[in-house]
Simulated assay, not measured.
Amino acid sequence: MDVLISGAGIAGPALAHWLARFGFSPVVVERAPSLRGGGQPVDFRGEAHLSVLRRMGVLDAVLAARTTPRDMVFRGLDGRERARLPGSFTAGDVEILRGDLSRLLYELSAADAEYVFGDWVTSLHDDGDGVDVTFAHGPSRRFDFVIGADGMRSGVRRLVFPRYRPEFQGYYFAIWDADGDDHDLTCSPGVVSAPGWLMYRSPVPPELMPDSLVAPGVYFDSVSRVRMPSVSSGRVALIGDAGYGSTLGGMGTGLAVVSAYVLAGEMAAGGDAFAATKP
C-alpha cells in the first residue's frame, strides 16, 4: 500500500521507517527544500520513549549525539542566584538537538522511503477507496492513505479539518544562540545568556505577527496547542503536533516517535479496515 506522509520533521521520518518495515511504500513530502536543521534541544523521558528508539535501532546513535544538560539559574538584579533547575531535571533521560534527531531519523528511513523536498499538498480527495492528492509543484498522485505529520500549523489538517486551528495561549517565545556561561542558562531581569531565551505576553494573534520581526538564527513561535475530538477522517489521519501538539511541555518529540510506532502497527494489523468511517 502507498502511504503519503506530509512532513519530514520527527514524526514523519519515524512513521516512514515503521511503515516500510511493515511492508508499506511510504512517500514523504516536505515543504522545505532540504532537511531543517537547528531548533532547540528535545528530550526523551521514560522507558516507553527509549524502548521505541531501541526497537528502531537508533538509540545508540541518539545517545552518541546527546547534549550535555545545563542548569537553569535564575538571578536577581544584584546578580545573586535566586533559584536553580538542575539540567538533569529539564533534559529528561536523553536530550538531543532537534536537527540532529531529524537527520538521524531521515538517514534511518531514506533507503526505504521516497522523499520529495520543496513541495506540499494543495488538495485531497478521499473517495473511500483511496486518496487523490495534488501538489504545489509535482504531478497529482493517488495513495491508499495520507498522514499529516506537518506540525502545529499542519496543511493537511487545514484541508481535512478546517474547523480546528492551533489555540493561541497569549504568549510568544524566542530562542537564539548567545555568548555566556558554558554551564548555566542564566535568566535575570533584562539579562539572558547561553543560549538566549525570551518569553512575553501579547494580545496580537500569530496570523498578524509580521515575518520581518524575526531575525536570522532566531527560533520564534507562539505558545499554542491543538485539540481535536478525532485525528482521523476516512483514509486521512494526523500524527504528532499536527493532531495533538503543544508548543511547550517537553513531551512532543517522544510522543511523536511513540505515536509513529503505534500508528504503523495499527495500520499493518488493520490494512484497508484501518480506514475509519468519516465523522
Rank of each mutant, 00 (worst) to 15 (best):
G9R: 04
I10N: 07
A11L: 06
W18D: 05
P33T: 10
L35Y: 08
G37K: 12
G39D: 14
Q40S: 13
P41N: 05
F44K: 06
F44R: 07
G46E: 10
H49R: 02
V58Q: 03
V62L: 08
V62A: 06
L63A: 12
A65N: 06
A65L: 14
T67H: 13
T68S: 14
R70F: 08
G79D: 03
L85E: 00
A91T: 03
E95A: 14
R98D: 10
L105F: 13
L105C: 12
Y106G: 01
Y106D: 05
A110Y: 05
A113K: 02
E114M: 07
E114T: 07
V116Y: 03
W120H: 15
V131D: 04
D132M: 09
D132K: 05
V133A: 02
F135Y: 07
G138A: 09
F143V: 00
D144W: 01
D144R: 14
F145H: 02
R157E: 01
P162K: 03
F168T: 08
Q169S: 10
A174M: 04
W176G: 09
D177W: 06
D179E: 14
D184V: 08
D184I: 03
L185K: 05
P189V: 09
G190C: 11
A194R: 11
A194T: 09
S202Q: 02
P210Y: 05
D211C: 07
D211R: 12
V214I: 13
A215Q: 10
V223C: 09
D241E: 04
Y244G: 06
T253D: 08
V258H: 02
L263H: 01
E266Q: 14
A268T: 11
A269F: 10
G270D: 10
A276H: 10
T277L: 15
K278L: 05
